[in-house]
């Protein structure tokens, strides 16, 4: 993948803007923009992970919210039980270095099993079976009374990160931004690797890959698992940002929104998912402040993007 010079300029400018966001927010007297920025970073991580599946491998998953939710609930549930555990576990259960990796591993492990089943299907059936599994997780968390069920689970305090005060929103914003940069660099490496080339090949023509002696299944499963793990990290950040997890995070409309972010940003463009997520988060916030009927504006925007701007925001930046 080669970025055009205009794209590189926009990319550098965007990250500079993000890095300076807390100062800008302070200068214009809108400290809430920092939270909005954190949210955009978190959703960008989730959207970028979905883009690995949808854009690179050609696997349109309609159940990606499940991994986001599982990551969030892993952190939430461990913190919930922390006080019942004896030392040293009670400390570990609220440490970011201990629970965040778990929030990646739990969804990834489940994705290995579910992915192995889902990948037996393709096309529209794949869309539907991923939706089915996500709905099962949704109903599971609605039914789990211990963890709040439909009411959601409140996280008393953010996961402990050495040197960062739990209520420092600006510091947490930088944590989210750093996570986003790391994830994007990782995904870029993946894209440039042999593994990424195989995934590209699978998307373009699966039969040809088989003809040259590559079995697509392990590659697709690996992409599925990696993507779920990264979404789990986004979930861990999400629950920490709002100090709250609820089954809403696993609902099918959340899966739909993630898909919208990816396509809005530009399918398969990696950096695009970030712009798609940011655009959706900001659009959401702006429209909801403007009118209670904000969905009547958002709906046609989505239709217009699909019909008129197929290459998404990132593609539009690239020019011809």
């Amino acid at each position: 993948m080669r970025e055009s010079s205009r794209q590189i300029f926009v990319l550098v400018a965007s990250f500079a803007l993000l890095a300076a966001l807390p100062w800008i927010a302070g200068a214009v007297g809108r400290p809430d923009l920092v939270t909005l920025g954190s949210q955009a970073c978190v959703m960008a991580i989730a959207a970028a992970s979905l883009d690995l599946l949808m854009g690179r491998t050609g696997l349109p998953s309609f159940g990606h919210a499940a991994w986001l939710g599982l990551g969030a609930y892993t952190v939430g549930i461990l913190a919930f039980h922390a006080r019942d555990l004896g030392p040293p576990w009670d400390q570990w259960a609220v440490q970011a270095w201990a629970v965040w990796p778990l929030a990646v591993l739990v969804p990834a492990a489940l994705a290995a099993v579910i992915g192995a089943l889902c990948l037996r299907t393709s096309g529209i059936s794949f869309i539907m079976i991923t939706l089915a599994f996500a709905q099962m997780f949704f109903f599971l968390f609605v039914a789990l009374k211990t963890y709040g069920g439909d009411d959601g689970l409140t996280l008393r305090r953010r996961s402990t990160i050495p040197g960062i005060a739990p209520r420092d929103d600006v510091a947490f914003f930088y944590v989210c931004l750093a996570a986003l940069v790391l994830v994007l660099l990782l995904l870029r490496r993946v894209a440039a690797s042999r593994f990424g080339t195989v995934l590209d090949g699978i998307r373009q023509n699966e039969r040809r890959m088989m003809a040259i002696g590559l079995s697509p299944f392990p590659y697709k499963l690996a992409a599925f698992v990696l993507s779920a793990g990264i979404a789990g990290l986004a979930g861990a950040l999400h629950v920490n940002l709002f100090r709250f997890a609820s089954p809403d995070l696993l609902h099918w409309t959340m899966s739909g929104e993630l898909m919208v972010m990816v396509v809005l940003g530009g399918l398969g463009s990696l950096w695009g998912a970030m712009f798609g997520a940011a655009a959706m988060v900001v659009l959401h916030a702006v429209l909801a402040q403007w009118t209670e009927h904000w969905q009547i504006v958002l709906g046609p925007i989505l239709v217009a993007v699909v019909l008129l701007a197929r290459r998404g925001l990132w593609g539009a930046l690239g020019g011809k």
């Binding site: 809108r30 809430d32 909005l36 949210q39 709002f242 809403d248 995070l249």
Partner: peptide, 15 residues
């Protein structure tokens, strides 16, 4: 949506 409510409250508290 609880998350949406939290954002509104957060914004109002701060701004």
């Amino acid at each position: 949506k609880p998350a949406q409510a939290k954002q509104i409250v957060d914004r109002w508290l701060k701004t």
